[in-house]
Design a binder for these strands. Structure first.
Length: 547
RNA sequence: GCGCCUGUAGCUCAACUGGAUAGAGCACCGGCCUUCUAAGCCGGUGGUUGCAGGUUCGAGCCCUGCCAGGCGCGCCA
């Protein structure tokens, strides 16, 4: 809706010799400041060191808006240009919601990108915990935001099935198997002590036979490794599926080794002159590309550092033709970003090819007390338990209610509450109430059609709702641009507030203002229900019709 | 010691790439059910945006220096 206005402002800006100037066109907080406002004139005045209000007047003099688009403009405050839309703009915007339905809010990107979004990527050494859940919710929502703005997304999970961690898993499981069979064995240093491995051990003995525990250590370890990875992977996949997260591609570190891509990566870096030998090790010159020290690729004992398969993996993503590789990482890995970026820049990839979204820790609170997590001892809050307790909708909403970089307090009691204190219920309730209107009217909401008659919507709550609805596509676009899904939860909460106020103060079915108003309010209710549903669906949250 | 993140109402957080009078929820106080879901609505109390400077028409946002918290700084992953 604002495209035509932006285009005209850009034309005038170009006339002032400010082609491509990045000005803001936004909906002011204060309704008295118009439907839209721009700081264009203030930016021009700054450039020319002239009076911003005079510049605003000159800009307005150059603007040629159709009266069917803009009804009025004014200079305001320090030099803002406030713009009032023609009424039929709002009618048209609502018509667009009704027409586009489930796809309202989707926009086509100027240049459609092929995006790889890697998230969760947990070691296959134990159950997913709440931190993984936050990463899963965030990654999935960012992926959806890219899709909603016209890009193609591959959701990808990287399985670290080749490193030291899975060696420890194998040794730990092997020890548990022996223990379950009544033999003497200890969990090794740095191993996994969780109860889940005892259970896995019993499963192995049940399926493979009790003789399994008496295999020679090398064979027992080898087979424990494969079985352990498989069992952990299956459990993780089940937890993710229960959480509503689906991956397009599961990549395996081992497979990258097996395909020779790791050695290939070292060779490639060598060819580019990016490596050197020193102190018996092979080093990578990451300092030339923004890292604060060079990094070892091959240790003096001949083994590779974990950096190498990660490099190979990111080269692989590039080779698969992605324009963007976005990784969702735990915040404790942030020190790792400069070296990975340095490598990819060194290889000549575009600077914005690689991006990282950091996820801060989740603190789980129960009755005001922190539930402590310790992976080493195996006592931690699993995603599975959390979802069982509070449900997928609440878990997703809570994980997405804050930007990823902020630490999150997850109040289990609040998430379970079925009252308006709980934001997810508050938002879903708005949707359910709108659905209730159509039950009362005995109408299928999608069958309510016709042109919206603004004159039949006299209540201030009517116009507030109208104006809130049409900002949804911009909210989506911005959330996508910033990779910040929390902007959608903020929008949804605001919209829900407006819906509840509208619902309370006005009546659709049997509207006292008459049948024209009833017709218009049913259309408005349908549009509001659509937008709420689209926002919730984007975040992977259900849209109940009754609660 | 160095780097990254964070610091906004009693608590949890927003704030549209530097805009107009910093906003929500919870908590607290006071109202509202003959009404499509009171699982809701309306109003009120509550702020030196950690501190001190700087940049400019304008700073919660940018710069500098402090303070506090978290994370990281390995030929571990």
């Amino acid at each position: 809706m604002t495209d035509a206005i932006r285009t005209e402002l850009e034309r005038v800006a170009a006339g002032f010799g400010a082609d491509g100037l990045e000005f803001v066109l936004e909906r002011p907080r204060d309704a008295g400041h118009g439907d839209l406002a721009t700081n264009l004139a203030m930016l021009l005045a700054r450039r020319d060191r002239t009076n911003p209000r005079e510049m605003a007047a000159r800009v307005i003099g150059e603007l040629r808006f159709s009266p069917t688009v803009v009804s009025r403009t004014e200079v305001a405050g320090p030099g803002f240009i406030n713009i009032w839309l023609a009424e039929n703009q709002l009618t048209g915007a609502i018509a667009e919601i009704l027409e586009r339905g489930k796809s309202y809010g989707r926009t086509a990107a100027a240049g459609s990108l092929k995006v790889n979004l890697e998230f969760v990527s947990a070691n296959p050494t134990g159950p997913l915990h709440v931190g993984h859940g936050r990463g899963a919710a965030l990654g999935d929502a960012i992926a959806s935001l890219y899709e909603w703005t016209g890009h193609t997304v591959t959701r990808e999970f990287y399985i670290n099935d080749a490193g030291v961690q899975v060696d420890r898993l194998a040794a730990s499981l092997w020890a548990r198997i022996k223990q379950e069979a009544g033999l003497q064995a200890d969990i090794p240093e740095g191993g996994y002590h969780g109860e889940y491995l005892r259970e896995n051990a019993r499963q192995v003995l049940a399926s493979e036979g009790s003789g399994f525990a008496r295999l020679p250590d090398d064979e027992g370890l080898r087979r424990s490794r494969a079985l352990g990875i498989r069992m952990q992977r299956e459990e993780q996949d089940r937890d993710l599926a229960d959480f509503g997260v689906r991956f397009d591609v599961m990549s395996s570190e081992q497979a990258i080794y097996d395909a020779g891509r790791v050695e290939h990566a070292i060779a490639l870096l060598g060819e580019r002159g990016l490596t050197y030998e020193a102190e018996g090790a092979l080093w990578l010159r990451t300092t030339q590309f923004g890292d604060d020290k060079d990094r070892v690729l091959r240790k003096s004992d001949g083994s590779l550092t974990y950096l190498v398969p990660d490099i190979a993996y990111h080269i692989d993503k590039h080779d698969r033709g992605f324009d963007r590789a976005i990784d969702v990482w735990g915040a404790d890995h942030h020190g790792y970003i400069p070296r990975m970026r340095a490598v990819l820049v060194a290889l000549g990839y575009a600077p914005d090819f690689f991006g990282v979204e950091l996820v801060q820790l989740v603190k789980v609170l129960r009755e005001g007390e922190e539930v402590k997590m310790s992976k080493r001892s195996g006592e931690f809050v699993t995603l599975h338990n959390l979802v069982n307790e509070v449900g997928v909708d609440a878990a997703r909403y809570f994980f997405l209610a804050r930007k990823g970089a902020s630490p999150l307090d997850f109040d289990v009691e609040l998430a379970k509450k079925q009252t308006d204190e709980n934001p997810v219920f508050y938002v879903q309730m708005a949707h359910a109430r709108l659905s209730g209107i159509f039950r009362t009217a005995e109408r299928d909401p999608d069958a309510v059609e016709g042109e919206l008659d603004l004159a039949a919507l006299p209540a201030p709550q009517d116009s507030e709702l109208l104006k809130t609805l049409v900002t949804f596509p911009e909210a989506v676009a911005r959330a996508a641009r910033e990779r910040e899904p929390h902007r959608i939860t903020v929008f949804l909460h605001e919209l829900a507030t407006v819906v509840h106020g509208w619902y309370h103060h006005t009546r659709a079915v049997g509207a006292p203002e008459g049948p024209d108003t009833e017709r218009a309010r049913l259309l408005l209710a349908r549009a509001a229900r659509t937008v709420l549903a689209n926002g919730l669906t984007l975040l992977g949250i259900t849209t109940p019709d009754r609660m």
